[in-house]
Design a protein around this nucleic acid. Sequence first.
DNA 1: GATGAAATGATTACTTA
DNA 2: TAAGTAATCATTTCATC
Lengths: 152, 152
Amino acid sequence: MEKLDHLDRRLLKILQRDCARSLEDLGADVGLSRNAVWRRVRALEEAGIIRARVGLLDPEKLGLGLTVFMLIKAGRHSPDWLERFSQVTRDMPEILGVYRMTGELDYMIRARVADVGAYDRLYRDLISRIDLHDVSASFVMEEIKDTTALPL
Amino acid sequence: MEKLDHLDRRLLKILQRDCARSLEDLGADVGLSRNAVWRRVRALEEAGIIRARVGLLDPEKLGLGLTVFMLIKAGRHSPDWLERFSQVTRDMPEILGVYRMTGELDYMIRARVADVGAYDRLYRDLISRIDLHDVSASFVMEEIKDTTALPL
DNA sequence: GATGAAATGATTACTTA
DNA sequence: TAAGTAATCATTTCATC
């Protein structure tokens, strides 16, 4: 896919906030026929620019009121260790994000759990599966902002 | 809305990975007629358990290859300061997440930018708008996992 | 929870600029 | 190459059982 033009950007801007809008509706917003919109959206999907359309659930209502960030030092730094760490964290559904970082801390984990007790179980579970040198947790008291919408 | 049953959970599990599936399709997966699925999904939306349906875009393909976490100490702790901090960060589209934390650091910001230069502009922009005592940045070298799907 | 009708929306083929 | 028109096909929505 070639460069995005102004209309592509406007469509993406809308779709990354609400992907349930009809083509007609989108067309009215950006000033195109529903077909022109359809073709553009399909091209954006095929190019992988739109990676997925997903439902965003309310964590509070599902009993997942606590977000925790875990700051991790690895201890070991072999490729095997990283491979295992990746596998283990990908397999744990409470873990939503795992990032290898620059700076003092080696890795950061973002997780969603019910409460501090559930975090403790997650922590024990994790360290039983993989060797970690140092782990410290920071809990989120307030989510001031949290969006999946990228700047366009 | 009353408690979620097994079928609700199965539907949510599917929808939070792909919300473009047809009702028929979903029904085949969970063993329900399209209409039974329709009613359940609508109830989940009305209860706010499904908060939104959004398109997830590929940050790399949009020239936003760098994720940065900013660890922030506030300096001031007045309600006014917090109000202004919230407003300022909500207004900056590169900033995707802002969290008030327990522990030593007061706030954490998650942002997406093109490169280190773009981060520097974001940083300057932020500190020009709000008084911050201490800011340190950690860049993401590798995204091992990053999902919007909650554990069900 | 199921059935089926009516309304809406998505997709295709074709035409135009 | 990109967009519009119109016909067709699929899906959603809703009344009724």
